[in-house]
Computed example of a mutant assay.
Amino acid sequence: MTDRFIRVALAGIGSCASSFVQATVLSRDSGPRMAGVMHEHIGGYRLGDVEFVAAFDVDGNKVGQDLADAIAVAPTAALNHVPVPLTGVRVRSGPLLDGLDGNLSEMVHPHPDCASLTAADVTAALRQSRAQVLVCFLPTGSTAAVQAYARASAEAGVAFVNATPEPVANRAELVELFVSRGVPLLGDDLRSHLGATTLHTALLELLQSRGMHVANTYQLNVGGNMDFYNLADPTRSRSKQISKRRALTSAGIDSDDVAAGPNGYVKYLGDRKVCFLRIEAEGILGTPVSMEIRLEVEDSPNAASVVANAVRIARTAADQGLVGVVDPVCPFLFKSPPAGLPESEALRRFQHFVEKSARPATAYTGAARS
């Protein structure tokens, strides 16, 4: 029988972290079925079994605060849906590196300790906290910082969930590091639970299943949180554009010339994201079919639903001795996994992993590495 709790560390205490922390608190007090959570148990773990043991950020206004207080500090845009009691976890300074390059430097002032910290300091903190899973919520474009946390996680023997589009699961050197250290890795670029990419790829698969030819499509996204503020800088959004196109390519279309957000920062939207989606297709006798959809979601809770899966998968993978990229689940949880799949096949493999993990007498070995 495994330890009942999942000891989780967070890197980047912004809107997504806020919603995820709130969701874990709600899960502890809710009944057996919680809206937006696909499985009450994964590998024997409930979402409420998450226990936060470490937190890292560079914002001088968040460092030193209890995690419960830090998740509400501006410029975090996530709404407070659930009162979060004090956790006893103080936010630590993390390595600055390229974390605040671009627009974010205008909004966030780093703690003075951050400039001198390295991945080795993160490794030491993870070991001290006895963390089992590290979730990386750093800003898009922070390639050096994200990869520093990934290396620190591998060296500490802590499973890593890369919610960012910066390459970790897609970088051979880092994958080999996780394999050599015997640690699970999940990534890259977390999907929203029911977001623009999930809806877009599902619709494309539906049209193709009917034998229709997709001629043109676009996906335009605007929002008002710090993610969109950061991505308004073209030098920071490149990896996100690549990630979204990879997801569309996995859905079976040529995405080289497809416009697929993010496309603008609209402050008054706050943590809401609005997607404008159009698909043009051709049916029998060349007949045209087109659709336009406006999707509006609260952005950060939409991500928290997926992290609720990813963290429990990461802990379950470690329990089962899986190392490196956990291939069966990544195409469903992430936009840019090492090998993408159509939506329905990604869901089937994810569900199969969860079902096999629910049988304690039969360990899942499909992604095990020697």
Results as ranks from 00 to 15, higher is better:
residue 3 D to K: 13
residue 7 R to D: 07
residue 10 L to G: 00
residue 12 G to S: 07
residue 14 G to T: 02
residue 17 A to K: 10
residue 18 S to N: 12
residue 18 S to G: 09
residue 22 Q to W: 00
residue 32 P to S: 13
residue 33 R to E: 15
residue 33 R to C: 14
residue 38 M to Q: 13
residue 45 Y to C: 00
residue 46 R to E: 04
residue 46 R to D: 00
residue 49 D to S: 01
residue 50 V to A: 13
residue 54 A to Q: 05
residue 56 F to A: 11
residue 58 V to Q: 05
residue 61 N to W: 14
residue 61 N to T: 14
residue 63 V to Y: 04
residue 63 V to G: 02
residue 64 G to M: 04
residue 66 D to V: 09
residue 68 A to D: 05
residue 78 A to H: 08
residue 79 L to W: 10
residue 84 V to N: 00
residue 88 G to A: 06
residue 93 S to N: 04
residue 97 L to E: 08
residue 100 L to T: 06
residue 101 D to G: 14
residue 104 L to E: 03
residue 107 M to V: 12
residue 107 M to P: 05
residue 113 D to R: 04
residue 118 T to H: 12
residue 119 A to F: 13
residue 124 A to T: 15
residue 129 S to K: 06
residue 130 R to I: 15
residue 132 Q to D: 08
residue 133 V to K: 10
residue 135 V to R: 01
residue 141 G to L: 07
residue 142 S to Y: 02
residue 145 A to P: 02
residue 145 A to F: 00
residue 145 A to D: 02
residue 148 A to K: 07
residue 148 A to N: 02
residue 161 V to G: 09
residue 162 N to S: 09
residue 173 E to R: 08
residue 179 V to W: 10
residue 179 V to L: 15
residue 187 G to W: 02
residue 188 D to I: 06
residue 192 S to C: 08
residue 197 T to V: 14
residue 198 T to C: 11
residue 206 L to A: 08
residue 207 L to C: 02
residue 208 Q to I: 06
residue 217 T to K: 07
residue 219 Q to T: 15
residue 221 N to L: 11
residue 223 G to P: 03
residue 229 Y to L: 11
residue 237 S to K: 04
residue 239 S to E: 12
residue 240 K to C: 15
residue 245 R to D: 00
residue 247 A to D: 03
residue 248 L to I: 05
residue 256 D to G: 10
residue 257 D to R: 15
residue 262 P to L: 10
residue 265 Y to T: 06
residue 268 Y to I: 13
residue 273 K to G: 04
residue 284 I to A: 14
residue 289 V to M: 10
residue 296 E to I: 10
residue 299 D to S: 10
residue 302 N to G: 01
residue 304 A to C: 03
residue 307 V to G: 00
residue 310 A to L: 08
residue 319 D to M: 05
residue 326 V to N: 03
residue 328 P to N: 09
residue 331 P to V: 06
residue 334 F to S: 09
residue 334 F to K: 07
residue 337 P to H: 04
residue 342 P to A: 04
residue 352 H to C: 13
residue 353 F to C: 01
residue 353 F to S: 06
residue 356 K to I: 05
residue 357 S to G: 13
residue 357 S to C: 10
residue 368 A to F: 07
